[in-house]
């Protein structure tokens, strides 16, 4: 099953590559857009579900529960669940698309590595995975150069002998921005709760994790993550769910809200 998914991705990438000037970077960008278009209904549902949950967490009722049961975590959790049920919100609804995205990301990584086939065994596997054997042979080796990077290798820009992971930094920054501006600002009248703490942790953990992936793995994956982040921003913006003020320092944000 997994192999079939990776093969499907590999062939899709190669077909896009074949018809877009044989540039693998362009193929990854277009492939990412294609995936985002296909998963947009799921994403839109997630955004709405997340929004609904976040609105609930900002409500007076939620704040009252937080205050009332602040010393009884078990009871607090039960009351929160009741509130979720009452409002018809699934606390896991917003996680599902993330879990859909992750296997796509892993499969894409393997597809990029497979398509670029930098060793004899990889090439042997690639030639057997492709649908159009004869035509494919004419494309090999695929052009792995995109802008300044080799898409099959982790990216570094060398300045005075020092390797700077520019792409990993861009991944971390775009992930940070994407995570930060798509979270509604907390209700200042409610006490800080676990959900807010979790959001805050996610804002820090996700950029670090994605940045680490970009630092370690082939730069083709980093291109996918960056394009994915930008497309996420567009998707959120289209649904009116981007909070640019989140990027301002807390004091300025409070000033602005007054």
């Amino acid at each position: 099953m997994w192999e079939a998914i990776v093969n499907f991705f590999t062939n899709t990438l190669i077909i896009i590559y074949q018809y877009t000037g044989q540039n693998f970077g362009v193929a990854i960008v277009l492939f990412t857009i294609l995936i985002r278009l296909l998963t947009h209904p799921l994403m839109a549902r997630q955004i709405k579900s997340t929004q609904k949950m976040q609105e609930l967490q900002q409500s007076k009722e939620w704040g009252d529960i937080q205050k009332k049961y602040k010393d009884n975590r078990e009871q607090l959790a039960q009351e929160q669940m009741k509130l979720y049920q009452k409002e018809g919100v699934s606390p896991f609804g917003s996680c599902l698309p993330t879990f859909v995205q992750l296997p796509i990301m892993f499969a894409l990584y393997q597809s990029v590595m497979r398509a670029l086939a930098s060793s004899p065994m990889q090439l042997l596997i690639l030639t057997r995975a492709v649908w159009t054997n004869g035509e494919m042979s004419n494309l090999i080796p695929l052009n792995s150069q995109f802008l300044w990077m080799n898409l099959g290798q982790p990216e570094r820009i060398y300045i005075a002998g020092l390797g700077i992971p520019l792409l990993a930094l861009i991944v971390a920054v775009t992930t940070f921005i994407q995570t930060k501006v798509t979270m509604p600002p907390p209700n200042p009248t409610n006490p800080p709760d676990q959900a807010a703490a979790m959001n805050s942790s996610m804002t820090m953990m996700m950029p670090l994790m994605m940045g680490y992936f970009a630092l370690t793995f082939a730069s083709g994956l980093a291109v996918y993550i960056i394009v994915g982040n930008l497309l996420s921003l567009v998707q959120y913006a289209l649904l009116g769910r981007v909070y640019w003020s989140n990027l301002l320092p807390k004091s300025k944000r409070q000033e602005k809200s007054k």
């Binding site: 892993f106 004899p120 065994m121």
Partner: peptide, 20 residues
């Protein structure tokens, strides 16, 4: 998730011989 990513992305490639 990070472990899964490493397992699926990294190790799967690493375990495969590159040539014969």
């Amino acid at each position: 998730l990070a472990s899964l990513a490493l397992l699926v992305s990294g190790c799967a490639q690493g375990l495969m011989p590159s040539s014969w």
